[in-house]
Design a binder for these strands. Structure first.
Length: 454
RNA sequence: GAGAGAGUAGCUCAGUCGGUUAGAGCACCAGGUUGUGGCCCUGGGGGCCGGGGGUUCAAUUCCCCUCUCUCUCCCCA
C-alpha cells in the first residue's frame, strides 16, 4: 500500500486564500467594532471541550449531538469534542471563572471556527465560522431585544439590508410541560400521519415535530396547538416586552409560532434571521434565551442568559448575492526597480529602510526586465517607482517616478526616504480631496432613476 | 445518511460519435520600445483531460470504483 495521492484539504474544509482573507478581515473588523460599540467584550474558549459539555448542554436527542460531532479520545481516554457551537463553551467558561460572582451582567462575544460533520454544500461546511454574543446574568427582556438589535446592527454595518427576523417563544421550565402534554395529546391523534422520525420524536422531543419539514408532518400538525397560546403569565409578559422593544426601534419581525431551535437549551425567546438570497441554507443567525443551560452543564443554579450565533460564510454569501463589494487589494506605495546586480543590492537595503519607515514596498526578487518590473508596479497600483541603474549608481541618485502622472525626478540616496514620505503624504491628501470618505452617510439624492438608459 | 449533476491549462470553458501534435478567452513570460507601467501587435511557456482499475489493437472519450465540488432532501449558522 504505497498510495501516494496528493494531499488536500479534507471534505467540508477549505483554504481562505489571499484575495478572500482581506474580505474576511474587513468583515471581522466590522463585527469587532460593533461589538465594542455595544460594549461586548471578546472571549476565546478552546476549540475542543469535554464531550459532556455538548451532550448535556445541546441535548442528547439533537442532530448535532447524535450525528454531527467530531468526537475523539485523547491519550488519557477522555472523550473530547471539537466545538459544534459557541454558547455552551462560553457558559462553561463563565461558570468556571465565576465571571458573574459580583452579581454583574456579563456581555461577551466570540468569533471563530465551529465543527460539524454534515454533508457539505453551499452555505454549509464541516469547519465553518460563527460569531456570537451572549448576555449572561439577567432575564430582562431588554437583554433579549439588545441581542437581536446587536446582530442587526452588525448586518447593517456590513451593508446587508435584506433579511427577515422571525421570533418566537418556547415558554419556560414552568409552562413547557403543560404545553408539551397538550401537544402530545394532539399529536397522538395524528400519529399515523407522521414520518418515522417524528414518531420517534414523540418519545424524545415532541416539540421538534412542529419543525419537521416533511410534507405529511406539516399537514398533520397544521392545526396543532401553538406554544404561544399556552405560555404562562411570566413568559407571556416577557415575550410581549421583547416584541414591544423591537417595535419601538421600528424593527420588522414575524412572530413564528412554530420556531423551534435545534438545540435543547433554549427557553422563552428564540429567533432567527433569514436571508432571502441564500436558497436552502437561508439562516444567517439563530439565537435565544437559555436560562437553564448553566445548570444543565453542572452549575449549581439557574443562570439567565440570552445570545445569538451567526454564520460568517453565509453572511459572506448573502453579501455577495446582494452585490456588496468587500474586496480590496493590499496597498502598495512604492515599487523598487533595478537595472543590474549592483543596483539590485543597493535597492534591497533601501527597500527595508523604507519599510521600516512605514512605506509599503515591493521589490523584484527575480531578475526580470525593467519593463516587467514596471508592469508589476502598475499591477499593484504603486504610487511611486524608484528606479536605479548604472547611471544612478554613478551619480549617487535615485530616479523617483510618480506613476500617477508619469513625472520623474532625480533624488540623492541621502534624501530619498524623506522625499518619498513627502510625496506619498501629498498624493494621499490629493486622493482624499478627490474622493471624500463616505462615512458622512449623507445621501445626496442624485441616484439615477431606474430604467433610465442611454 | 439518501438522491441528482459535474471534474479538461493558474481561472472560465470548448472538444474528442474511442484513433496520430487536446483548443479558445483571460492570466503569465518575452519581443516590438539599447533603462520605464497601462493600450496595441507578434511570439512563447504551461495539461498524468481528478485518481485507480476494467474493456479494447488503441481510452481524456465507454464501464466500474474512489476522491472532490455543486444542487436537493434532512438539519442547522
Amino acid at each position: 500500500m504505497t498510495e501516494n495521492r496528493s494531499l488536500q484539504s479534507i471534505r467540508g474544509t477549505r483554504d481562505l486564500l489571499p484575495g478572500e482573507t482581506e474580505a474576511w478581515d474587513v468583515v471581522e473588523g466590522i463585527i469587532r467594532e460593533v461589538m465594542g460599540i455595544y460594549q461586548y467584550r471578546e472571549i476565546r474558549t478552546p476549540l475542543f471541550e469535554d464531550t459532556q459539555l455538548f451532550t448535556r448542554g445541546i441535548g442528547e436527542h439533537t442532530d448535532i449531538v447524535n450525528k454531527e460531532m467530531y468526537t475523539f479520545e485523547d491519550q488519557g481516554g477522555r472523550s473530547l469534542t471539537l466545538r459544534p457551537e459557541g454558547t455552551a463553551s462560553v457558559v462553561r467558561s463563565w461558570l468556571q471563572h465565576r465571571l458573574g460572582a459580583q452579581g454583574t451582567v456579563n456581555k461577551l462575544y466570540y468569533l471563530g471556527p465551529m465543527f460539524r460533520q454534515e454533508a457539505p454544500q453551499k452555505g454549509r461546511a464541516r469547519q465553518f465560522h460563527q460569531f456570537g454574543a451572549e448576555v449572561i446574568g439577567t432575564d430582562a427582556p431588554e437583554a433579549d431585544a439588545e441581542i437581536i438589535l446587536l446582530v442587526l446592527a452588525v448586518l447593517d454595518a456590513l451593508g446587508l439590508e435584506t433579511w427577515a427576523l422571525h421570533i418566537g417563544s418556547l415558554g419556560c421550565r414552568e409552562c413547557r410541560p403543560g404545553y408539551r402534554d397538550i401537544l402530545v395529546e394532539f399529536l397522538a391523534g395524528v400519529e399515523s400521519l407522521l414520518c418515522e422520525e417524528c414518531k420517534e420524536r414523540m418519545k424524545t422531543n415532541p416539540l421538534r415535530i412542529l419543525d419537521c419539514k416533511n410534507e405529511g408532518c406539516r399537514l398533520a400538525t397544521a392545526k396543532a396547538p401553538s406554544h404561544l397560546d399556552h405560555l404562562d403569565e411570566g413568559c407571556q409578559i416577557h415575550f410581549n416586552a421583547v416584541q414591544a422593544l423591537l417595535s419601538d426601534r421600528g424593527i420588522p419581525f414575524t412572530v413564528d409560532p412554530r420556531l423551534v431551535r435545534g438545540l435543547d437549551y433554549y427557553e422563552r425567546t428564540t429567533f432567527e434571521v433569514l436571508s432571502p438570497d441564500l436558497g436552502a441554507q437561508d439562516a444567517i443567525c439563530g439565537g435565544g434565551r437559555y436560562d437553564g443551560l448553566a445548570q444543565m452543564i453542572g452549575g449549581s443554579d439557574r443562570v439567565p442568559g440570552v445570545g445569538f450565533a451567526a454564520g460568517i460564510e453565509r453572511i459572506m454569501l448573502a453579501l455577495e448575492a446582494a452585490g456588496v463589494e468587500l474586496d480590496f487589494e493590499p496597498i502598495c506605495d512604492v515599487a523598487l526597480v533595478h537595472i543590474g546586480e549592483a543596483a539590485r543590492q543597493r535597492l534591497f537595503a533601501l527597500c527595508d529602510i523604507l519599510r521600516r519607515a512605514g512605506v509599503a514596498c515591493t521589490i523584484e526578487l527575480f531578475d526580470r526586465s525593467v519593463k516587467a518590473q514596471m508592469r508589476e508596479a502598475n499591477r499593484r497600483e504603486a504610487l511611486l517607482a524608484l528606479i536605479v541603474g548604472e547611471n544612478e549608481l554613478k551619480d549617487g541618485m535615485v530616479t523617483v517616478k510618480n506613476l500617477v502622472d508619469g513625472e520623474e525626478e532625480q533624488v540623492s540616496f541621502e534624501d530619498v526616504v524623506s522625499v518619498v514620505l513627502e510625496k506619498l503624504e501629498k498624493m494621499d491628501d490629493e486622493a482624499v480631496d478627490e474622493e471624500p470618505q463616505d462615512w458622512s452617510e449623507e445621501d445626496d439624492g442624485s441616484e439615477p432613476e431606474p430604467g433610465e438608459a442611454a
